[in-house]
Design a protein around this nucleic acid. Structure first.
Lengths: 164, 164
DNA sequence: ATAAATGCAAAGGGTTTGCAAAGGC
DNA sequence: GCCTTTGCAAACCCTTTGCATTTAT
């Protein structure tokens, strides 16, 4: 909403360090662009889109082409340090892979704020639901759409939820 | 997988009838294309994509442009007779809105088979999870990815799940 | 020196839009 | 006849790709 997704500079630095190591260990060139993009993507505290990562990286003084951003995101995903999310907006968002194993997302349909939470019982239920129907569960994706506390108070117009 | 998504001709006919009424009641022209598209979309027993709807409509002898298909889908969605789904494939799928209030989706990552099921306890949990974090729940979206019974037996290669 | 990454621009898939022609009402 | 829909093609958004150039190793 307001602007700049930075924060946890220590975590971010450590994550970029790990990415650097990943690149070296895999014989991949460690370039300035890759590190700059990784610093933004892995240091983000919001769920950023590819373009937001590009814009922020450039805002920090590192000229990067769009293709490079996407290609670096691919590498970051393969490294496991970044994970992708799909909130049904028509494009992907990315978040640093913290040690958190799996979590659900709660999305405010007014301001876009995203809250994450973990619920093992809910997770177990998805496994049971799958098994009850003969499926071997692999993963699941849950997004709950609603209006956050702040937006309920200000009572601004509600942009209907995307897809069910 | 095999091919033709038709079935429940009675339900389909009734649904098209309702769509027809919707158009009339809203002063919208009842055109041949709209009815042809509605017949396919509302009669489908699989979750069809926009293009699949277009192809099937043409296969039944009704020439329709792509734009018309999308525009008619919009009208169908607004009428409430059709609902859209997003399984993270990069495009939307549609299904006739039966009387079923809400249901979850279980998707086989090998053959694409979709099973629907209802689980009120799970639904209640999403409401509680939202409220616990100060959110007023509006809706949710859950897709469980796994391998269906048949594909487990034949043990064919598994196309990894799309996005978490 | 070599193999890979970069940037640009063009292509790609799904979807939307502008506009003249066709068709309900 | 008026106003909406249709169809085509172009535009659109997000993402990927081809290719000549730059760069890390």
């Amino acid at each position: 909403m307001d602007g700049h997704p930075v924060a946890r500079p220590d975590d971010a630095r450590a994550a970029v360090e790990r990415f650097s190591r990943y690149l070296r260990e895999h014989g991949l060139p460690v370039t300035g662009q890759r590190l700059a993009i990784a610093e933004v993507a892995l240091g983000a505290e919001r769920h950023l889109s590819a373009e937001e990562i590009a814009v922020e990286t450039r805002a920090r003084g590192h000229g990067v082409g769009t293709a490079t951003v996407y290609r670096t995101i691919d590498v970051l995903l393969r490294s496991g340090l970044l994970v992708e999310r799909d909130f049904g907006e028509g494009f992907r968002r990315f978040e640093p892979a913290r040690d958190v194993p799996h979590h659900e997302h709660l999305l405010c349909t007014v301001c876009g704020r995203v809250v994450e939470f973990r619920d093992e019982r809910l997770e177990r239920m998805t496994t049971l639901a799958a098994e009850a129907r003969g499926y071997a569960r692999q993963s699941h994706r849950l997004v709950i759409y609603g209006v956050c506390e702040g937006c309920q108070r200000t009572g601004r117009g509600r942009g209907g939820p995307a897809l069910r």
